[in-house]
Each structure stands twice: as structure tokens, then as C-alpha cells.
Design a binder for these strands. Structure first.
Lengths: 324, 324
DNA sequence: CGCATCCATAACGTTACGTGATGGATGCCA
DNA sequence: TGGCATCCATCACGTAACGTTATGGATGCG
């Protein structure tokens, strides 16, 4: 038997239920409209549309007032369940936005692991205990790749602005890069070294004859680049990606080295070693990398904000200066 | 601490959840769009709008594919609950539309109580056992008032089309009147009465000298009206609203009477009484009265449909003819 | 018998939300 | 390693939904 209306699948929506529930509760279109923050005709027309869509009346107009039909009562009865479920979802979203929940997956390069990262995670935990933080130590290329692949949400990395061969920009292609702070690259020399005692900004050119101690492969690349800009090719005697070892070697008088201030601040500058800025102003920029748009995810945005604050005034501002 | 977006009350709606749930399930905007029956840009823009409204991303675009953010996963996780609740409501509405539930509150005048109404209720029960039916016997004015007041959904009543003083039309003002069937008003006379034996359509004018037996007040009004149109004022000897009593009086030779065929068919025509159509074609119209729009309520609409079928071909078609 | 209340309707502007067309980025595969 | 297919974003555009204010009719009340 076919009834007049199609009677097919009604596409109920929550707005409908909100309106019907209000009308049912207050027994009046006008009052429901007021409570919902609408004008009276808005609710009146809304009901009409729903009735047209459903093919059956929801309310019967009975002179001054109205009365719900069977269908109207069905809707009103179910409204609570639906709206409660919706509210639960909205509440959880509000938690996210309010950082009472959420998740950040961090990645950072090694010398940040013992400097910036602990402070960052500490600040996050202190201000937003509901936010889950995970951390992965990784060299910039891997950290950035992790962001790109969705394995991490935020990578702390660095780039050498003066170095046109720096592979960072290429690796971060298509991602969002937030500049955090300048991290000076300092010359480490044995105390009493002639070039060092000449004055604080040292000129690398005067050290062309020294033995050089290189760090990790990428640091080595930067060393070559800096010396090239100073007009010479360094003689590299030792290589190690262990910063502490580099400093120990300098202390032992085996040569001089370039190290970022942040790396130096990770441990104490050994006795017998002095650190000096270079006249060329060698430095790297600390950056945070996210997927485009991810910097609007509340937990990520807040992490970025804290990170910016922690690095304001220099990469190692709160750790104490390392340059003498 | 204030986060960038207002972070106020999000007004989630079910459509949002439907889209997010589909995207979450299929892991692709394009496939979600296909499944939902939309074009790909529709879903893409929908997501964008929701993100703008929420102030945070729902998906991260990761090259070819996409990935849900925390917020997206929250939405997807809650979507089931909300949509299930919505489906429950929609299902119950479908039951109503399909008449697997619903309610009709009937009212009808006395002589319908023993004729049309039992058959109607029986048919409803047989075809739609889920529909609840209540019945109230009431004279047309009260029955119609009950509809107007929302006490009844459908009143079976009648009106006398030829009678300009019939109060029915006034009482049904503003309600919806559905014509059901013609119900002839017959002259009852003792068997062998001269006027009756003259031929079947009798002329009321020939009965101007008879004693008349009137029925209920409204029937009495109709009697006066019919006789007036026949050119005389009847001499009313007896009055009773009991149809059986009227017939018995006619059988006893106390006078003649006008009774609707339906009333006659409610009980058997007593021996010694004959029924005859009038030359003027006296009749009343059986009608069903509902609130405007209520005739689209599935249960009411179906009742009306059955009622129309039951009365097709005359008010007492299936009860057997009463006129000789 | 006004008066206040409540709902329906009309007229209108804005926004939401579709569609189709198009282009860029990405992964796959020969 | 170039097509090639796939997936998403964006643009331009039309329609329908949905809100508003203004207005009118019906009803119940003092």
C-alpha cells in the first residue's frame, strides 16, 4: 500500500531536533524562538520546512497555541539523546581547543634534546597537563621527514642562512617553517691562543693555518662554507659528531673548532677553552617545522608559542651564556 | 591565557559528523563524497567550513591523501553515537509514516457507532495493527468541537446540504471537511399506508395531514426544513432521539417519520414499516472533519482513506438496503 | 469589546552549499 | 624517468535554505 508522501528516508538533522525539542519543551513557537535566539517566524518556517520534508505535520495549530503530533513527540523524545551525544562531542572538542586534551609529537636534533626540549616539555606539562607529549630525537633531515610523513607534529631543526648549499630548505619544501631564534656559531680555541686573545669577534681568516676539528657531517659542511667565505680551506684534522669530544680536543690543544652556542651550552665549556663570536657573524637559525595548517591545531599552536618564548633572546638564553 | 580562536560553543550539526565520519571511514575525501552522493569539492569545502567554524583543522592534507587530526578523530568517534540516535528517530518516524505506529482519536455520531465505526476500526486493526484507535461517540457539534480542541483527530459527522439553517458548516468553520457519502433520508410509513403505496419516490406534500414523529433536535430541524420545502408545516406528535423508538412508533401506526438510511440500517426495519425515498431527494452528506493539515498525519490519512472506501456507494452500502 | 498574545505569511537579503571545470601535487608503473 | 592516474584545492556560479522585519488574522482575556 502506498501512502501519499514518498515516505522515503528522512534526512533528519540536529537543527530540526533542536527546534522541535524547544517547541515541545516550551509549548509555544514564540517562546522556543526566544530561547533559541531566533525570531518567531524563523522557528515557524523551520517547522514548516521540516513538515514538508517529512511529509507529515509535527505540530497542529490549535488557535492560539500549538500541540505536538505523534511525529512531533517522537522527534522531541529522541532529541535529548541526539543532542546529548552532540554535546559530548562538542565538549571534547572544547577540551581540545582549551588544551585540556590533545597530543603533540615532537622531534628535535640532539643538542636540543638536552637544552630546549626538556624545558619545553616541562612548560607544556606545567601549563597543560592534559596534553600528551611524545619526543623523538632525530637529525633535522629525519625529523623533517617525520613531519612530512605525519609521524611527528613538530620538528625543531635549524638551517644556516648564509650557506647556499644548506639542504634544509629543500627538505622542508612544502612544510611550514617557523623561525625561532638565532644560534651563534662560536669559535672554540684553547685559552691563550693568539688569535683568540686578539679581540672578541675573531676573524676566521687569521686561523687559516690552524688544525680544525669538525663535527657531524652537516656541521663539517658548514665549517667548509664558513671558511670558504673567509677565504681559505680549513685543514681538518679530526672529525666527530660528539660535541663534548670536540670541546675536549680543543682543550687538549689539538686544534680549533666551530660549534653552535646551543651545543656548547648543553654541557659546560671545559676549562682551558674559550668561545668567541666570529667577525662574519656565523650563526644558524633554529626553526620549528610543521605541516601546513598544523600550526592551528591547538596543542601544536601552544607548543609553538611556548617554544618561541623559550628561545626568545637567543637559543641558549636561559641556560647562561657560553661566550666569555 | 587566550588562544587565537574564540573557542566558544561550537554548533556542531549532524551533517558535519556525517561528512567527517565518512572521510574517516574511507580515508579519502573523494571516496567519502562518492559514498555520500556528493561531488568531491562539496566535501572538500564542507570540511573547510567546519574547520573555519571550529578554528582548528580536522584533516591534514598530506600530499595525495589526508589524515585526521585529533579533532577529526574526536568527531569521527562521536559520529556513530549521534548518527545512531538520529537513525533511531528517523526509524520511528518511518514507522509512523508506514503506519506501524501512530494514533487516531475518532469521534462519530450515534448511528455511525453501530454501523460505519465498527467496520472502520476493524479495518484499521486488520491493516495496521500498530495504530492505536480510540473512539468517542458524540453528536456532530460536540464531535467537531472535539476536533477543534485537539481532543479528537477525526470526527465523522453529517450535514444537510439543502438546509440553509444547518448549523454544521458554521461549527466546522476553519476545519477541513471531507465529504464521504450521501445518506438518503427516507420516509418511514406503516405498511399499506396510502401515500406509501402510491410509488417509491413519495411526495412529502401528500403527507401534509399526517402525524409526524421527530427525532433528535437537529433531526427535527431538518424535518421542518424538508416539509417547508414541500410546502407545509408538519404536525409533530412525538419526539424522541431514539431511532428504534421512532421506528416502533411508525410500526404502531402512530405516524410517519423521516430517518436517514444509516440510522435505519443500524437496526432492522421492524415488520409493518416501509421506507421510501422522497421525490425531493432528501438526504444528508456524511463528512469527516479534521484539523487543517491533520489529514496528512499518516494514521489520520489512512483512516480517512479507509473511511472513504467503506462509505463508497452509499452510507450503508455494505449493511444492506433498507428501502424496500 | 478592546487588548494582548500567538501564529502565519510576505518580501527581502545573506549565506550556505551544491555543481562543473580546472590545476597542482603525488604516487605508480612501464 | 617520463607519462598517467589519482587525489585534493580552488574558482566561478546558480540555487535553495534560512534568517530578518513588517504585517495581518485568530483567539483568549479582562
Amino acid at each position: 500500500m502506498a501512502l501519499a508522501p514518498p515516505s522515503g528516508s528522512f534526512d533528519l538533522d540536529s537543527q530540526t531536533l533542536r527546534v522541535v525539542a524547544a517547541v515541545a519543551e516550551y509549548g509555544s513557537i514564540t517562546r522556543a524562538a526566544t530561547v533559541l535566539g531566533y525570531s518567531q517566524p524563523a522557528v515557524s518556517q523551520q517547522l514548516k520546512r521540516v513538515e514538508a520534508r517529512l511529509g507529515m505535520p509535527i505540530v497542529t495549530r490549535s488557535g492560539r497555541g500549538i500541540r505536538l503530533t505523534d511525529a512531533g513527540e517522537v522527534l522531541a523524545r529522541h532529541a535529548d539523546a541526539v543532542l546529548t551525544a552532540l554535546d559530548a562531542a562538542a565538549g571534547e572538542l572544547a577540551d581540545l581547543a582549551g588544551l585540556r586534551s590533545g597530543r603533540v609529537r615532537l622531534a628535535a636534533f640532539p643538542s636540543a634534546s638536552s637544552t630546549i626540549v626538556p624545558r619545553l616539555i616541562g612548560a607544556l606539562a606545567a601549563e597543560h597537563s592534559g596534553v600528551q607529549v611524545t619526543y623523538l630525537e632525530a637529525e633535522p633531515p629525519e625529523a623533517v621527514a617525520g613531519v612530512r610523513d605525519g609521524v611527528s607534529d613538530l620538528a625543531v631543526a635549524f638551517r644556516h642562512p648564509a650557506d647556499r648549499h644548506d639542504p634544509f630548505d629543500a627538505s622542508a619544501e612544502g612544510l611550514t617553517v617557523h623561525e625561532l631564534a638565532r644560534d651563534d656559531v662560536l669559535l672554540l680555541a684553547p685559552a691563550g691562543h693568539p688569535a683568540a686573545s686578539a679581540g672578541d669577534p675573531v676573524d676566521l681568516a687569521e686561523l687559516r693555518g690552524e688544525n680544525w676539528i669538525a663535527g657531524c657531517p652537516r656541521c663539517r659542511g658548514h665549517l667548509l662554507d664558513s671558511c670558504a667565505r673567509a677565504g681559505f680551506a680549513p685543514s681538518i684534522a679530526f672529525e666527530t659528531d660528539n660535541f663534548v669530544a670536540v670541546m675536549s680536543m680543543v682543550a687538549a690543544g689539538l686544534g680549533v673548532a666551530l660549534l653552535p652556542e646551543l651545543a656548547i651550552s648543553a654541557s659546560a665549556l671545559p676549562p682551558g677553552v674559550t668561545a668567541h663570536r666570529t667577525r662574519a657573524g656565523d650563526h644558524r637559525m633554529l626553526v620549528a617545522v610543521t605541516r601546513p595548517g598544523a600550526d592551528h591545531i591547538p596543542a601544536v599552536a601552544e607548543t609553538l608559542r611556548l617554544l618561541t618564548g623559550l628561545t626568545a633572546g637567543g637559543a641558549s638564553a636561559r641556560t647562561g651564556r657560553a661566550a666569555q
